[in-house]
């Protein structure tokens, strides 16, 4: 699904259109950030007055230079950090008010993918994916069908018994995506998923994320990959110095006038 075109923007521009930040989400929102500020104990303000609504099924690129606050934003979403001010609401739960012991359960609603894959080198592809279920107490009989299903989805059924060092970078990232999917998450967060991959493989990974999005999973992808962002014309949220400076549907990597 796609976002409906926003109301007329202040600045005259045909496409892309600027989204007013306070526009009410038309559908159920997976993620709502309201007036979020994050200041670290050392005084550095990483995010300032951030408002962001991500409806169910959206595909959002999060762009911006290093140090713009992308990593901090992701840390807030997985509640590695708590906002100094404002609300981060994931699936109708305010993360700041979520008790610590409920954090693990909330994290199972999020699948996260990293630039460096974060696979366990001593485990096979199958075991790496099953690991996510085992450590969350999933009954044994449910593990196998779930793992087999997501491995088929990412196209790694044949490589199931190989270890990460026997795989190409793209295959390793697909393993990580399978692991992120195995909990049936509401939201996939991809932090520079193509950062370590060559352009062709990057496209493969993008195709996979788009297909997962078509299956109804919301995707938030932080990236520096300008080609991909500009070519796909999806929703683009641009951060700079901790503020959202641009939030447009069908946007390019760089601002276009």
């Amino acid at each position: 699904m796609t976002i409906a075109p926003a109301p007329p923007a202040a600045r005259p521009s045909s496409r892309p259109t600027t989204r007013p930040v306070d526009q009410a989400a038309p559908e159920r929102a997976v993620l709502v950030l309201h007036d979020v500020t994050k200041q670290y104990p050392n005084g550095k303000v990483a995010l300032r007055d951030v408002d962001l609504v991500i409806p169910e099924g959206d595909f959002v690129f999060l762009v911006g230079p290093s140090g713009a606050g992308k990593s901090t934003l992701i840390k807030l979403l997985i509640r590695d950090e708590v906002a100094t001010h404002g609300e981060v609401v994931l699936d109708d739960q305010d993360l700041a008010r979520l008790p610590r012991r409920k954090v693990p359960k909330m994290r199972r609603k999020i699948g996260i993918i990293f630039q460096d894959f974060k696979l366990l080198p001593t485990k096979t592809v199958w075991e790496n994916v099953a690991f996510a279920l085992e450590v969350t107490g999933t009954p044994r009989r449910k593990v196998k069908p779930a793992v087999d299903r997501v491995l088929a989805l990412v196209g790694l059924t044949a490589q199931a018994s190989q270890t990460p060092n026997q795989l190409s970078g793209g295959e390793q990232q697909r393993t990580a995506i399978a692991r992120a999917l195995v909990h049936d998450p509401r939201l996939i967060i991809a932090d520079e998923p193509t950062g370590n991959l060559d352009p062709l493989i990057s496209w493969e990974i993008l195709q996979l994320l788009l297909r997962i999005n078509e299956l109804g999973v919301t995707v938030l992808m932080a990236t520096h990959n300008a080609d991909v962002v500009t070519a796909l014309r999806r929703r683009v949220v641009a951060l700079e110095e901790g503020r959202i400076i641009r939030d447009e549907v069908g946007g390019a990597y760089h601002h276009e006038d």
Partner: peptide, 17 residues
Amino acid sequence: AEEIEIMRLVGASDAFI
């Protein structure tokens, strides 16, 4: 440490870690 980090990220509860 990496294993523990992965466990945390996939939503393992403290007891399981």
